[in-house]
Design a binder for these strands. Sequence first.
DNA 1: GGAAGTTAGTTGCATACACAACTAATTTTA
DNA 2: TAAAATTAGTTGTGTATGCAACTAACTTCC
Lengths: 155, 155
Amino acid sequence: MKPILPEGHLAAWRRYYPSFWRILAAIEADLAAAGLPSLSWYDALYELYLAPGRHLRMNELARSALLSRSGLTRLVDKLEKEKLIERQACPSDGRVQHAQLTDKGVEQLRKMWPVYRAGIAKYFAAHLTDAEAAQLEKSLGKVATAMEPPREAGD
Amino acid sequence: MKPILPEGHLAAWRRYYPSFWRILAAIEADLAAAGLPSLSWYDALYELYLAPGRHLRMNELARSALLSRSGLTRLVDKLEKEKLIERQACPSDGRVQHAQLTDKGVEQLRKMWPVYRAGIAKYFAAHLTDAEAAQLEKSLGKVATAMEPPREAGD
DNA sequence: GGAAGTTAGTTGCATACACAACTAATTTTA
DNA sequence: TAAAATTAGTTGTGTATGCAACTAACTTCC
């Protein structure tokens, strides 16, 4: 097996990988220090916030929030207990549950965003020029798009 | 709180974040499918491989391998049980343990690398031109360098 | 040199997550 | 329409990880 992995690309990966982990840990620490829940809560709430009607099926939410379905079930349990979302049975398909963002959920997003934004600014954006950010967005956009539909069947 | 986070930088973050998670999940799946251990094993073994004498203190290894000290202790337990590393008491300081890479550990790295490399190539590098990879390396290098010493005391 | 403080590593405990097995509901097939 | 296959979500179980508390060893300070 000899895949095409030029030195320069490997060097990029060797920056990409640890930078992400360290930024993530720093942001999580900031959230925890502010008495706020973790980024996985934010991700799920934010995906619902973006969705039309502010609701998604569990399956869709799992995909957007980068979780397995079982992981999503547990996360939704916690979010529902905090009344940040509500489970709603789908009238047209008895198997489907919708996760519906509540006003309290929107409020939680508003509380978390300043801390999250500050973390992105401090740990990530502060080190990039406008041009670099634009270039990064373009390059990683291609990567992200390619990975987007995490189907199991071969491409 | 109004940190400097221009739109373009936020857009870059919104690509960076999910692209990383998805690539990581794909690579981990490939490793598991090949009957190999996870990336955290690779990271730890590789850091030891790079270190002079192929050994590091637990503390140093925890930092390089992006783990908490307790997490590292548990990981080293497992690596040692597989004889991929050995714990060695430091002669000059009785508190210190060194993790020493064994030949079997080097062998494990050699088994994992082709799968890991193929994942990097397929999920990451394939979508980037040489110029983009170079630019990414430079930009994320600045980010990574800034995050590098994860000290707890305020900057 | 001995008490107090610091440092390195480990262990107890709690949490977050994935995979596989399960249940229930829908769709397909004959 | 009844059986088989598929799909959505949940639950059982195992694993990885972090934080806080702990132990042991070194350093500092008087």
